[in-house]
């Protein structure tokens, strides 16, 4: 992966990602005082496998299965009118629903906070959780809304021109977080959104 971006810098490798996820899963359990009434919802695309991995770790630690799924917030975004129509991602809410439960939203990178704002709106149309928490693998700063993460894998100070690229094994074939200096190719600017 790093070879594809010659000037990229690896900030988290496979083992760092594994350790961060293990720590986050313990923090979630600690904060929730166990696994009761937890629901993990990943935000597509890369939040979804991360949520599944957190759920697997929680089972290992606690012995109880935690429902997990995915929550697509595309239709709730505030930039729908500004950009061409986007394809929708899959939303998959566990059968138990979200009413009265503690929902942990899981995403790979926390940046402007706008995706999380949209996800909170999407979530409120699905039910009324008792509480909503946010777990992210990387917090790169530059928030544009009053939103913060409860569980962070790594705080990563970045400049606005840099890009943060998260790869997860389920989608990209390896676990890795890279920082690359910005590129002018707009299709590659994932992080600028």
């Amino acid at each position: 992966m790093a070879a594809a971006y010659p000037s990229a810098r690896v900030v988290l490798d496979e083992r760092d990602v594994a350790r961060a996820l293990t720590r986050i899963s313990h923090e979630i359990l600690e904060r929730n005082r166990g696994a009761a009434d937890l629901v993990l919802l990943g935000i597509p695309t890369r939040g979804v496998p991360l949520a599944a991995r957190l759920a697997a770790r929680i089972v290992q630690v606690e012995g109880t299965a935690v429902p997990y799924g995915s929550l697509d917030a595309t239709m709730y975004r505030d930039d729908l009118r500004l950009r061409p129509a986007r394809a929708l991602e899959h939303t998959d809410i566990p059968h138990a629903g979200v009413d009265g439960r503690t929902v942990v939203l899981v995403d790979d990178v926390l940046f402007s906070g706008r995706t999380i704002r949209a996800a909170l709106d999407a979530l409120s149309d699905l039910g009324r959780p008792r509480a909503v928490r946010l777990a992210v693998l990387v917090d790169r700063g530059h928030r544009e809304l009053p939103i913060r993460a409860d569980f962070v894998g790594k705080n990563l100070p970045t400049s606005l021109s840099e890009e943060v690229r998260v790869s997860v094994a389920e989608i990209d074939g390896c676990d890795e977080v890279l920082i690359t200096p910005g590129s002018s190719d707009s299709s590659a600017v994932r992080s600028a959104l």
Binding site: I43, P44, T45, R46, G47, M75, L80, R81, L82, R83, P84, A85, R86, A87, D107, D108, V109, L110, F111, S112, G113, T115, I116, V136, R140, E163, V164, R165, V166, S187, R190, S191, A192, L193
Partner: peptide, 26 residues
């Protein structure tokens, strides 16, 4: 209706931004 109406009015031919933006979208 969603695909025709959401987003900016784009000239015929160009279309859907299906690319993943998860790398830093939060």
């Amino acid at each position: 209706l969603y695909l025709l109406l959401s987003g900016v009015t784009v000239p015929a031919g160009i279309s859907i931004d299906a690319s993943s933006e998860a790398g830093g979208a939060a």
